[in-house]
Design a protein around this nucleic acid. Sequence first.
DNA 1: TTGTACGCGTTATCAA
DNA 2: TTGATAACGCGTACAA
Lengths: 341, 341
Amino acid sequence: MKKNMNIYDISRLAGVSTATVSRVINGTDNVKQSTRDRVLNVMEQFGYTPNAFARGLGLNTMNSIGIMCADSSDIYLSKAVYYIEGQLRKNGYHCILTCTGYEREQQKKSLSMLLAQHVDCIILVGSVFIDKDEANNDHIYNAANSVPVMLLNATLEHDNIYCVMCDDQLATQDATISLIEKDIKNILYLYNTQTFSALRKAAGYRRAFETKGLICDERYLQFYKGSSQDIDGIFDFLIRLSNKGLVFDSVVASDDFLAIGAVKYALRQGLKIPDDFSVIGYNNSVITACCEPELTSVDNHLELLCNTLVKVCMTTLSGEATPNKTIFHGTLVHRSTTKTA
Amino acid sequence: MKKNMNIYDISRLAGVSTATVSRVINGTDNVKQSTRDRVLNVMEQFGYTPNAFARGLGLNTMNSIGIMCADSSDIYLSKAVYYIEGQLRKNGYHCILTCTGYEREQQKKSLSMLLAQHVDCIILVGSVFIDKDEANNDHIYNAANSVPVMLLNATLEHDNIYCVMCDDQLATQDATISLIEKDIKNILYLYNTQTFSALRKAAGYRRAFETKGLICDERYLQFYKGSSQDIDGIFDFLIRLSNKGLVFDSVVASDDFLAIGAVKYALRQGLKIPDDFSVIGYNNSVITACCEPELTSVDNHLELLCNTLVKVCMTTLSGEATPNKTIFHGTLVHRSTTKTA
DNA sequence: TTGTACGCGTTATCAA
DNA sequence: TTGATAACGCGTACAA
């Protein structure tokens, strides 16, 4: 447990000043090659690493970035965190991860914590952080006054806030239209959160009918008040809907778990998929391959979104101008829960 | 973008010395109530937060803990990260997450990074960090010389290294025995990593036969060289095994994805589950509910493991003595891919 | 090309 | 109960 060396020790051992050691460490200024070698040699020999705290104090940064994620065990969000962390690490940043949950208060606490840690940037993963009531977003606006704030799959109009997202509305619209065009019209839209993103998807569902000159029956938008991980709960919910007399021959879901619940419903009802019953999920996650038949789903290109987000982040941190909003389109990935052609 | 206040500003505004402000902040020593109030008032008024870097420099800690995780998007590991982060946050620590992947070199880099950040403790999530060749674990031993190292579901005998784990061997043994006792004996053990944990499970499989006075046929331990997320690949693998003439009527898998691949195999071969074919997964993850019939799986009580790990971690950091190894038993959760009674 | 000396914002020690 | 001041270890003007 030998005490860590500091820059004074190194300078003494190398017979130079601390300034020179610092220059060698940071590769700045001109240092005679022989001096540089001597210093590097000593550093190597004693396994010297500059003290990150002292450096942070002087430079006012420790090259850290805060990631806020409601639930990093969520199958979709965890992927986002993974991609983002990897890209940031490549760029020399490390990540402080905080799982905020879905309550606004804890989210605010986490945000304060990150700001107190003087992170260089804050990344909000998902749209659960944005409140429909503008006044409740003040904490985010305040954060943006000290550091850039990056939003993944959410949007907020403010200086120093940058959004990278998939056009969920359009993607859901396309998915719905793909069913309508196969003459499937009793389409249930199944969702379980009221986030910005979920509402955009609902809007896309409605637009699909409009676009096709049809009336969208609002009874077909169904909100499931439960965890999307509770697949049996979803199953029960659909059974109840059916028993209440709602006739539907297909489901467009706002995430893959809900869709799997619908698949389960069809299988247990003895409905043939996709002949009698079609299902489209959202996120194109790994569980699309877990059910039989395998699930058709919307791919929102998460990895691309994350890579782009980090790219925008780096550009912003370097002081260059960057677009405040970057939008990609989703893609419907056909598998076996929808009819071909 | 107003400049942050520092302790001098506050002390001046409150008409006291910086020492007193510091005392108020940290609740230490005796400060007259009226003075305390005055200081608190000023701090509140200007929204003062102590500079974390300066504090870190002085105290040599920023209350951060490093989490190393090969792949935080893994359905199982991500849950571990989630639980651990939550508990640490409750205890006033924040987490630096680094996704190391499965290559030793990157793992070493991540470890060095965390040490350079002067984290208070390092948590290794999963057994992929431990090398069978003792000499290749030196970087971990070295880390343990400066900070406590916590291992989740892995083990290493060394000072300042603490392990919290599930007895995977015993759990797999029990699972296998549960099949044997239903007179199912052509049991395939399916695995896809060579980690410590996976090998322990294999050992449990073998022990099951021993225990029952049977011979364990080594051809029935099958290594699938692919990502466990590639369910179709698993399916193909099983088909090939079957075509090669290996007769099996059940699968014990080292994770749930592999098990789902087996379910898929049975369904597509027209085998009735569980009458003709049984499947047991491992981890009892959410995907057990994604297939039909739903998957029987071993629950290794991840949340309990994580909570315990953090508890041990806190105790260690407080300087108290703690057990170096804490072991829990797993539990077989029966669903519909195994026969009842 | 190199060295001196100060600032960064705390906490802690010692003295008052 | 409070204040003055020395660490903590680094980067960097400025000087040489």
